[in-house]
Design a protein around this nucleic acid. Structure first.
Lengths: 351, 351
DNA sequence: TTGTACGCGTTATCAT
DNA sequence: ATGATAACGCGTACAA
């Protein structure tokens, strides 16, 4: 069977293609009788407009390109979910791609999406200082919204308030009596990492505590990194009494290391993690976390993006920051037995 | 700046559009000198071909539509990751959409993707018996691969060997001495659920054990369902000594319920879960799971899909089944103290 | 080897 | 209100 076109519909309905198009696009200037005939013909043939031809003609694809470092990260899937909701409600489809944290690949993907004439870009880049990426975005000249990131460009962005969240978490530990608080987090290559560090420093400064640089491990957001650095920290002559991990993938690494070293949480070590997960909720003990509404981030990002696509100035939208909250669970306690002290961890019950 | 076309390039290079097109498409019949001029012009102008126009002309979009019930499910993101690898290597892009397990939405999404002229579909449907969905796929007439699903259509499919995996898990529990083994899993609406049940029944039958229908809870794959049914099972007059959950989201529900009822794992209850997760690995105690390589499923699915897009007959590809394995951890033990018996759960060490 | 010209399926303009 | 027709940007058969 040859492929159907509006022409076939027109012929069957006894009208011209123009009228078919008008019916499809709900143009009011079409006679009810003609409209009926066209609709009948469409139903009879099972025709539907070819979106590619529509895109060709209207110079609009109703597609949004989406780049994240790794789609398996639940952080990103929640964002994508939120974005998809907002986008599909407006008839937009989502193209996704993983960059594997590789800036060159990110730049290539941006080029790819612009070649495919995406109407907009929703990006969470790995390295905010990568020139190829910056150039790609600039020359793409397409409505763009950054998620949890910042760039030296006139681009709208949306994210969560990591600084305030981290500050609150640190303050909480300080209020429990902790002074040696370690921070394991991603480095300075992106906004989230920088803001988290600032929040931590804010709280330490407010409490007049000196910051031990050895307790700052800021080179990666991976679980393996968290595992290694936790081990390292616990082996220090003067180990921390609390660890905050920034990055939702890191908790597993922290817990693995603590388990390996037979360090009891929270008796010997208090732990706060970033991003609520099933693991945090169901670990033994349940882990206190800094939580934010990632779906809202995605929804907001998509909504803003659509506004820009619709003609709003990116500059006027600026940056949107969603709040975070702290979920208190059982992984924090006042510092008691030092890790050096030999205690036999003893918990009871399934908690 | 007006948008660039191949015409602009042709003019600058002093050739015709045809030659520009030939250069872009690596047509060998173009003189080296002309080729150079064109490439120089392309570089100078920063022109790149408009993928929409190319699609229009070639009737091919190099886009694959992908539908899953919920993109937040790590099971699906691993599959997507694998698929993306295989697809992007061939220059294909991925459109994704969540169906929320709603068959009508699934049908609508299939229609949407075909309107957008996707070259292929990679689907994991919620309900294999939904007529609207079946009709949508049939009338879409587009290369399609089913992931972890089966349909009464001539469509290729790829998945994991749930039957063998579940059989092995059940056998393992039987070998430990369990006879009352509960199965909490998704219903009969999709292949994975059916196969899991069959594997369970296989093992029970092989061991000449009678199946207590009360221990079969087969209505959903959600965490909440697992929570409720685990509670229900533990409250039975004659409760199971082991629970197998089929579905990677369910473990959290099982653990929550066990914790709530102060049931000790594995002393009072053995647990096996489907799908390896951080939660399974880091729970207390670590949970024995049936594991499979989801990225491989995605890669295989995409590879097959591309073959069909390239002209292979779906019928010849049939169904591909990837193996599963069992990861033994500490959540299973011989049945000892009944749950009715009052014991004080007492574990030591961070395990 | 290269230029010309047509057509892919729509939408939109311009008559009527 | 509706029909005819010209784009949209590219690929390709055909002619040269």
């Amino acid at each position: 069977m040859a492929r159907l076109t509006a022409n076939d519909v027109a012929r069957l309905a006894g009208v011209s293609v123009g009228t078919v198009s008008r019916v499809v696009n709900k143009n009011p200037t079409v006679a009810p009788k003609a409209k009926q005939k066209v609709e009948a013909a469409i139903a009879q043939l099972g025709w539907y407009p070819n979106a590619v031809a529509q895109s060709m003609r209207t110079a609009t694809t109703r597609m949004i390109g989406c780049i994240f470092s790794d789609i398996r990260n639940p952080l990103y899937t929640s964002i994508i979910k939120g974005a998809e909701e907002a986008l599909s409600a407006q008839g937009y489809a989502l193209m996704v791609a993983s960059s594997g944290e590789n800036p060159d690949r990110e730049a290539a993907l941006i080029d790819l999406f612009t070649r495919r004439r995406a109407d907009g870009l929703l990006l969470s880049l790995a390295d905010e200082s990568s020139q190829p990426v910056i150039d790609a975005i600039a020359s793409a000249n397409v409505p763009t919204v950054l998620v949890e990131r910042d760039l030296p460009l006139d681009v709208a962005s949306v994210g969560t308030d990591h600084r305030a969240g981290m500050k609150r978490a640190t303050k909480y530990l300080i209020s429990l009596g902790h002074q040696r608080i370690a921070l394991i987090s991603g480095g300075q290559k992106n906004r989230a990492g920088r803001e988290r560090l600032r929040g931590y420093l804010d709280a330490m400064q407010d409490a007049d505590l000196t910051v031990d640089q050895d307790l700052l491990r800021l080179d990666s957001l991976s679980s393996d990194y968290a595992f290694n650095e936790t081990q390292h920290l616990l082996g220090l002559a003067n180990p921390p009494t609390a660890i905050i991990s920034g990055g939702n993938q890191m908790l597993a690494g922290v817990l693995r290391a603590a388990r390996l070293r037979c360090v009891d949480i929270p008796d010997q070590l208090s732990v706060i993690s970033s991003g609520d997960t099933e693991l945090a909720e169901l670990a033994t003990p349940p882990v206190t976390v800094i939580r934010w509404d990632l779906e809202a981030v995605g929804r907001e990002g998509a909504t803003i993006l659509l506004k820009i696509v619709g003609g709003a100035a990116a500059r006027s939208l600026g940056r949107i920051e969603l709040p975070s909250e702290i979920i208190l669970r059982e992984s924090c306690a006042p510092p008691r037995a030092g890790i050096g002290t030999l205690t036999f961890p003893n918990r009871r019950g399934p908690e």
